[in-house]
Design a protein around this nucleic acid. Structure first.
Lengths: 191, 191, 191, 191
DNA sequence: GATGAATGAGAGTTCATTCAT
DNA sequence: AATGAATGAACTCTCATTCAT
């Protein structure tokens, strides 16, 4: 519940994150985390109130890492179309460099009893920025006039699938070009 | 392991399927299933070798139900383009009528220790037909020349998202038209 | 939760009862009970839903044993004064023969998070009969016109204290006579 | 173990006392106490050797508060009968003004592993004075010739029950009169 | 004097699985 | 075919206590 030893705090978050990415959120247990960190299980409860609290902070840590990545987009002088395209490119590059992070975020979101549901504080979601952009894009006649959920579904799932199963770790940006075209033609309103 | 009492066998499968759809695969337990069916827990082990075996058969049952739905496509006299479009429409209609089935299939596939991974027998996947079609489509120059996984990702995720969160249960086929266009423009090779 | 093996069911109740009497209700744990019965701890959950459920049934078992003892009083042809005196004598004899039972009942009642508080079904309390008699006695001008709680407090505590710390196990009824006088003079309305 | 910061020492005692009164002695933990005082858990071990030691001192503090109240009785010039009656009245008034204190004392006494049992030092019990008076009363032929435990049981339990559940906080002394008569008739030897 | 960190023991509970009947 | 009984392992969580700083 307290935190002074930042190092171990970070270690617990890190190990949990790895566990989620490799075994799935459902298989995470404080027992396993503790064993991997090399501490006693009860020790975890010094750093986190709950198992839920732990997962919640894992989620937060990944989220802020991601948000840093997209901050440059806001308050920019780009046109809306440019912003939308830039967002897709940013997401691609982020996913390529931090493949685990998106996986972890999505897994925690999708958990049966997600700690996010019970959390009092509403977090500025990672897709919040994207959703705003999409809505603006639809209103401006740039994107197809269908439920924004569909645009988001395409953008996220295609990039996730591409970066986890298809892309090479250090590939050049140009390799993504055909995939980008696929996404853009899907969401952009045809002339 | 045998199935004398066919009725109870089906009941177990059905209840498990409902549990997966409502609570998530991770929260399924033989205890809960048995209680809902109204039999003793150990009884389940007469019909299934173990929990994995149960889940595997739930998966199979949903799969065959789905394949029935698509059989009409094979050996048809349609052109490849028509077959691809028909597949998308069929999937849309199946998902609309059996929203639970796709959910269950995907959940079992996505399980941390999915019974499908450890299964010796390789099942003819539900996406096998789709994948074949897509590959043919790419070779024929109809679809974009990118990894077929991406086409499948789009088709499945968009339809799943649309039918579970957006579509109305008894909506007319025409309501799907804009979404269909979205999917098709995403996967079809532009002129 | 089920019960076929009555013997083990009774054994668990018995062992728990002993534990409460010797160590106090607060120190009862399913672990200890299981160890004393010689079964695995999880086995207890076959016979009882909860620890609370276990304690509740321990309470019930002692209660019914006690009620059997007092049934003879009801519907009797005794005068009210005779009934009151008979109740005190019966309680004395019951407490002398089953010193543990009253201790167990009172301990479970007094528990911080008593399983009785959360129980939906309201049990006919062991003091219900006594309270009814006392109220009737007050109305009839036989007992002192003060809160019936005070009469009950005296009757129960004096007998409990006497039988647990003072009385000899096989003593003659006459040994109780001075104590009986004490109780009666306390609760009876003086002329 | 020492007590430099007298204030914090008192605070710990006070908080523990409240916890016992409200939640019951069994639910007291150093964790809860520390949280309520606003100190770290380990800090408690500076002021007290262990949990038992803490409880023991809580007991002592309540005890001395109570003894102050009764000191006026000793070395007085009252007759024995007057002293006995005065003791009862004093106890009533003390219990009315400090309802928590008696509760705390009794709870600690009644604990399964009471710190008083293991304590090497024998404390001059709170009932010591009362017991002495009672013994003297029996010898002088004022009180009934039964085990003094019984007299004490009546006096303490009736007053405790009366002041906690029946009496009004600021009631006049005269309201207690019928209850006093009840007690006195119970313990006094009839002519 | 005070605290953060750590721990082992123990609590209640659920689960998948086995076996005799 | 069906069930009751049993179990060991795993789980989350709380607690009293110790120790270095």
């Amino acid at each position: 519940m307290k935190k002074k030893n930042e190092e171990k705090y970070t270690q617990i978050i890190q190990v949990t994150s790895n566990l989620i990415a490799t075994q799935g959120a459902a298989l995470v247990s404080t027992t396993k985390v503790a064993k991997l960190v090399g501490i006693s299980q009860s020790n975890i409860y010094i750093y986190f109130k709950n198992k839920d609290d732990l997962l919640y902070h894992v989620y937060l840590s990944k989220l802020t890492g991601m948000q840093h990545f997209f901050m440059t987009l806001e308050n920019s002088s780009l046109t809306l179309t440019q912003q939308l395209k830039a967002y897709i490119m940013n997401l691609y590059q982020f996913a390529l460099q931090h493949p685990q992070d998106i996986e972890v975020i999505e897994q925690i979101k999708a958990m049966p009893n997600s700690p996010l549901h019970s959390s009092e504080l509403n977090v500025t979601d990672d897709t919040q920025l994207a959703r705003n952009l999409v809505v603006k894009g639809i209103d401006a006649g740039i994107l197809r006039p269908v439920s924004p959920e569909l645009h988001l579904t395409i953008v996220f799932n295609v990039i996730r699938r591409y970066t986890t199963s298809i892309a090479k770790p250090n590939e050049d940006k140009s390799a993504f070009q055909p995939v980008f075209a696929m996404i853009w033609d899907a969401i952009a309103k045809p002339d």
